[in-house]
Amino acid sequence: MRVYLPCTLPALARVVAAGELGPAPLTGYAVTPALVEWYASGDTEELEYVALTEAARASLRMLAADRADGVEVAARRVVVAAEIPDSIVTMGTDLEERARVRLLKSVPIAELASIHVDDLSAAADVEAAVAALPAADHGDDDAQFAVDGAEDHELMWYATQEIPDLLS
């Protein structure tokens, strides 16, 4: 199963140093039966895009958490895609999070399929989205508009061999 895992650039550096993404359990996003049922008209590619988008939203929250902890982190969403055996993936029943899954084991770096990262041109909108998250969580429509603005930017695709270039 293809699983999209939210990340940040500092977290990606830790993945490289450790040789794995972990520790488990990990939250990811995938094409689940609940997502397929909800998005009945979509093909597999569209459904994977929905899962990738959910992971990118979660990456925004990771950026906000890093900053709250005093970590200097670039305003770029990062999503790691991995091929995961179904046997280590569990799916919830939360209708609000139809694509959310939990991984019961860490993911070795060899199982990573690709990395998806915001282009530098998205930084201002990602910055605005991170700043707006608290107000958006409290129902502020203008703040939600700022958070949604980050999604106007497509994540760039990188092969796993390009990770060192992303981190330099």
Rank of each mutant, 00 (worst) to 15 (best):
R100Y: 01
A82F: 05
L60S: 08
A51N: 07
P108L: 03
A55Y: 10
A68S: 12
R100N: 02
D43A: 06
E48P: 03
M91T: 14
R77L: 10
A68I: 00
R77Q: 11
L52N: 02
V31E: 07
M91G: 02
D119G: 13
D86K: 07
S59R: 10
I84Y: 03
M91F: 00
I84A: 05
I109E: 04
E48H: 13
A51V: 02
E83D: 15
T90C: 02
E97H: 13
G42N: 02
A99C: 10
L63T: 02
A64S: 11
G92F: 07
L112C: 06
E97I: 00
T32D: 07
D94K: 09
A110R: 12
A65Q: 09
R57W: 14
L120M: 08
K105W: 06
L103A: 08
V36D: 02
P85A: 11
R67Y: 01
T53E: 13
S41T: 12
V126G: 01
L103S: 08
A30K: 05
E111F: 04
E54D: 15
E48D: 14
H116N: 10
S87A: 15
A51M: 06
A81L: 04
L103V: 04
A75C: 03
A68T: 01
S41N: 03
R102E: 15
A110I: 01
V80Y: 04
R100Q: 15
D118H: 14
Y49G: 11
T53G: 12
L112D: 06
D66K: 00
S41Q: 06
R67W: 03
S59I: 07
H116P: 03
A110E: 14
Y39A: 15
E83Q: 08
Y39N: 09
V73Q: 05
E46S: 04
M91Q: 14
E54Q: 12
A74L: 13
L112E: 04
P108F: 07
V36G: 02
A74C: 01
V78C: 14
A58C: 12
V71E: 14
L95E: 14
A122G: 05
E96D: 12
E96V: 00
P85V: 06
E83I: 01
R76N: 02
V36N: 00
L63N: 02
A110C: 00
L35Q: 06
V71P: 05
T93Y: 06
A65S: 12
A75S: 12
R76P: 03
A40M: 03
A34M: 13
L104T: 13
L47Y: 06
E97A: 13
D69N: 13
T53A: 14
M91C: 08
V80I: 15
V101H: 10
A74D: 14
V117E: 09
L35R: 04
D94H: 07
L35N: 05
Y49Q: 14
L60F: 09
S106P: 06
E46Q: 10
A34E: 12
P108R: 01
A56L: 10
W38G: 01
D94Y: 08
V126K: 02
A74T: 09
